[in-house]
Design a protein around this nucleic acid. Structure first.
Lengths: 256, 256
DNA sequence: GCAGTTTTTTCATAATATGAGATTTTATGT
DNA sequence: ACATAAAATCTCATATTATGAAAAAACTGC
């Protein structure tokens, strides 16, 4: 994912730094990250990093490959993860919606969440025919601005934040069929007007998508629901119907 | 789950306390926990709790229902969870094994992890016929000592720790068909002798189970693989075959 | 075996977390 | 609606803890 810069609340410096490190490790990919890399990316002193990381390893929030001395997320984190998914959080609240949207359309549905400069797949239901998706499976991610769910969230952030994120992600857009920042801005404008994001095969040829943010009142969008389907399936009125379905489910989710 | 008592490494008091609170919230169930409850259970000063919890909420590691003022795991935790599941951790390493064990037998397979006094389901593959299981779905848990995967882990801890855990879980065993501590000790002895745990319908009538711990050299058992199947399916040699299958997969997992 | 690199430990100092108590907010009973 | 209790939140002087520069140790590649 992207380099992390966690806005820090007052006090609690150690915890702020810990979260920065956790974020970096979470983004670290399959090989994990070394102390040196973590120190460099976080901007923290090596000794400070080392101390925090070791404590986290002790608590199994992180794990360390003793051979390669690289840090990755640990067993306790996996446990918190499954508990978070089961508890009354966003995943549970969207579970029924995802399933119902899939059933009503036969198409693949996604629950995406905003995480730093990225959009992470938290849950999905596979459609009747297998379609290639940007994020692959649960846990997969794309830069904010790439894909309908991702654009849907980006579009309803305030402009300063959009600018910041787009700038941060600039270098990564090119790998998505030469997406440009102007195109992203265009999509944001379209999405704000329409209320939901639409992609008609522009990212993956032949694959369309519709995405809408879950907007809790008074909060910035943190999650989105989306459809992925074959462009061939998109006849007149289909996109509008999918938009309406998303709106219906999201309203239900927000009202408890 | 169970009341949490995290052994604390030297220094890093704030982080230790944070983990205690995270554990408590992870165990908090669907309704979450209030500040007062968390302060009581953790033994921490109310103000200290409040400060730590608020910081965690700020980082979205926890979330707070503003109406009911109760804490639960937050969105960032869900994200770490899906990343942990995708990365090179225990879940990924067991993914193939789970699937293959299911394919070779047609039965439900589980990956369980030890968490404080409990055994949590991290992953599973459903068998050909639906069988009731103790843990239900991913994220479900049972006290250590209940069920084959759970016993498998407990059996290979050192005796002091077994005693401690059994004592802590005493009150909870009764809800599992009047399981007793003597029965648990018996099962531990059987498991150590055999190398894997076997349950023949003693916890859920008609449902059998076979479980074996994943023992990384030099570490206490942190996870286990297990089968759940119909007792009716258990003919001569079946249990032994299942034990051998588990051993084979676990050896493969340990050797990278 | 050596030179460079990365990790780990040390320790005096500065900075932070602490928790008792005061204050505010929320819940409950009349 | 008001009074009372209970819980949550805030404040601040103090002691404890985190900090990071530097030294030591462990690893790496040649």
């Amino acid at each position: 994912m992207s380099p992390t810069a966690q806005p820090s609340s007052s006090g609690a410096q150690l915890l702020d730094r810990t979260v920065v490190l956790l974020d970096l490790v979470a983004d670290g990919g399959v090989d994990g990250l070394s102390l040196k890399e973590l120190a460099a990316r976080s901007g923290l002193n090596t000794a400070t990093c080392h101390r925090i990381l070791n404590t986290l390893v002790g608590h199994k929030l992180l794990a360390r490959d003793d051979k390669k001395r690289r840090y990755r997320l640990g067993a306790r984190m996996a446990i918190y993860g499954v508990r978070a998914a089961r508890g009354p959080g966003i995943i549970s609240r969207c579970e029924v919606a995802l399933t119902r949207l899939r059933r009503r359309t036969g198409d693949t549905t996604h629950l995406m969440a905003r995480f730093n400069h990225d959009s992470v797949c938290l849950d999905r239901r596979d459609g009747e025919c297998i379609v290639p998706t940007l994020t692959g499976s649960i846990g997969g991610f794309v830069p904010l601005g790439v894909g309908p769910g991702s654009i849907a969230m980006l579009a309803f952030l305030d402009e300063d934040e959009q600018d910041y994120i787009i700038r941060a992600n600039l270098g990564r857009y090119a790998s998505y069929r030469n997406l440009t920042k102007d195109k992203v801005r265009q999509l944001i404008a379209d999405t704000r007007r329409r209320g939901y994001a639409v992609d008609m095969g522009e990212l993956i040829p032949g694959i369309a998508g519709v995405g809408m943010p879950i907007m809790t009142p008074g909060e910035k969008p943190g999650a989105a629901l989306s459809f992925t389907l074959l462009c061939a399936k998109v006849g007149p009125g289909v996109i509008e119907r999918y938009g309406a379905l998303l709106e219906e489910e999201i309203n239900a989710i927000i009202g408890q």
